[in-house]
Design a protein around this nucleic acid. Structure first.
Lengths: 337, 337
DNA sequence: CCTCCTTGAGTAAACGATTACTTCAATCCT
DNA sequence: AGGATTGAAGTAATCGTTTACTCAAGGAGG
């Protein structure tokens, strides 16, 4: 492999000049620029990113932390992020935390060791982590989830309250009155906000929030199954279900099917996340669609802007909030969609 | 941040000795080892991986190339790989090629530039790429797909022929006789093998392969829709469909539903890949399940073994072939599952 | 007792870039 | 015309490791 030294020799110049040409730094005589470029292409030279990173004390690598890569929502964020990364010459490192704090901590340490150029986090608990250290060293963007502990970190979010409110209102408009909520863990901001949206929609209709109509899961499918079973087989059963994320909706849907209840006649059904199956099943499921891909792209743009800024630590805290979309399908109205 | 120099000073030793202790290289007096370790923990020292990589001419980073990260199959491979990567102190870089040769080429170049420790490829066309150069520089493992152009590269595969054969045989046993195949692009090895499995199963039953019962898609959903529509609305329509991957199955299933055909009575249905929705729809879909997560893990193990080997280029070519599993559900037999 | 080996530790040279500092020449101003 | 200023290019230090050499000391063998 040719090094910058080889290029310098080939062009009859110093490495400093070559470096300046390559990085478009400082003024260099046009003729020499040409000579350098010729030498570069003659030798097929490519700068060694490791040498560069060592000297610059920064790597053009972005990290992405999520709790579950296999979940379509996170996979989609990842995809959006990856597209921007490639376009802008960044590499994308992946970390699947599985909501495990220790893995999260370990990975943040890695980001520091490698001097990543930025990091996007959609991960587990946001309280006990080393985010403080991290955010002094590199641009950090929270995506999907925020934490009250970190009011000064940029974030790209979805208007969860609005989404939940719209879905529950829609169920109410279709004459469901005992709407059960399958909520997520309340220490996760999204779960909290969706619960709030549910409550506020009920409030708008003058309906009180009944504790026995709320079951809390863990955002994974099995808990959705359990929660749905409980809500639907109670003494005073729910007549509709609103599920706080796509994973739990899988479980909830399976439970409803196993119990032989017919949607939408016996039970209304709506959920957050527009996963593929939700429009394939019959009746198709009404969902609150999150712009996941755009979430990833938006996070990337924040990273890029921070990098370009002279002082990445200065500037306003960015809170980019994207709007979800209620997609009405067959599962939420008795008379057909 | 403390450097190895600081540790050396703190311990009253040279950097060479510290490095030897850290890497367990060469013999060092026990007392000094202790002194180094104390200094390390006193300073909270962590080796800078960039300096190390520059000197060693190798990075503990693995690359993963796939055509579509959002496809559950690849997401699952990714997950398996990522688990092993983290366990073994590797970082995982992601590349979504979208079957685009240029992106693939670009990414391979990146892997060379960064001197990755290994690369796992489940990507686009396997003919025109720079794989030749790559495989001389680092361990390469093909996953899911192989190419005749690269008989000497390790691979972790699924027995596609067997899987397709089993599924089609199962349809035949359930008295479907005009089984349509929605095939993938034949330059992709998996598509080719699944087609062969389909043909051989028909052959076993003394049924000839009819060209008008085979429609070729591109492994994405829209092509599945078109193919299914064509096969089912032909003059002599198919009475069952076997789909060569999960993405096209989405399209095919939607087409069947739009046409109002009832599965399994009017049409048998089976597909490769056990994506989530296939057991949620009613009737549930009979599938050939691929052990995707294990595919990722197995690829990781090959990388690890190669790395440990004194001469990574020597040794047998590994062809690890995992068995798929036929999961019979309701969509493939008229009398119920 | 002297030489030869072995062992363990230190010195310093890489690895491949970027950049502060220096140098030299040309231009400008008075 | 001569000193000050500017601009372009080169020299060499630096980023943080690893490791080929070097060196000193101690034990073994003659």
């Amino acid at each position: 492999m040719a090094t910058i030294r080889d290029v310098a020799t080939e062009a009859g110049l110093s490495t400093a000049t070559v470096s300046r040409v390559l990085n478009n730094n400082g003024r260099v005589n046009g003729a020499l620029v040409a000579r350098v470029n010729e030498a570069v292409s003659r030798l097929g030279y490519r700068a060694n990113p490791l040498g560069r990173a060592l000297r610059r004390q920064r790597t053009p690598i972005w990290g992405f932390l999520a709790s579950d890569i296999e979940a379509p929502f996170f996979a989609s964020i990842l995809h959006g992020l990856e597209g921007q990364a490639l376009t802008n010459g960044k590499l994308l490192m992946l970390c699947n935390t599985g909501e495990d704090l220790e893995r999260e901590r370990q990975y943040i340490q890695t980001a520091l060791d490698y001097q990543f150029g930025g990091i996007v986090i959609a991960a587990a608990s946001m309280t006990a982590t080393e985010l403080d250290v991290l955010k002094d060293e590199m641009p950090v963007v929270l995506v999907d989830r925020v934490s009250a502990s970190y009011p000064d970190i940029d974030a790209v979010l979805v208007n969860n309250h609005l989404g939940a409110h719209a879905a529950v209102t829609h169920l109410l408009e279709n004459d469901y009155r005992r709407i059960g909520l399958i909520a997520g863990p309340s220490y996760i901001s999204t779960a909290h906000q969706r619960r709030a949206g549910y409550c506020s929609a009920l409030g708008d209709y003058g309906i009180g929030v009944a504790d026995d109509l709320i079951a809390t899961g863990d955002f994974f499918a099995p808990s959705g199954y359990a929660a749905a079973t409980a809500l639907v087989t109670a003494d005073q059963p729910a007549d509709a279900l609103f599920v706080a994320n796509g994973q739990m909706a899988v479980g909830a849907y399976a439970a409803v099917r196993d119990l032989g209840l017919s949607i939408p006649d016996q039970l209304g059904f709506a959920t957050f996340d527009d996963d593929l199956w939700m429009k394939l099943v019959d009746p198709s499921i009404t969902v609150v669609r999150q712009p996941a891909y755009q979430l990833g792209e938006a996070a990337a743009h924040i990273l890029l802007r921070k990098e370009a800024a002279e002082d990445p630590k200065a500037g306003e805290v960015v809170r980019h909030i994207l709007e979800p979309e209620l997609i009405v399908r067959a599962s939420s109205s008795r008379g057909g969609p």
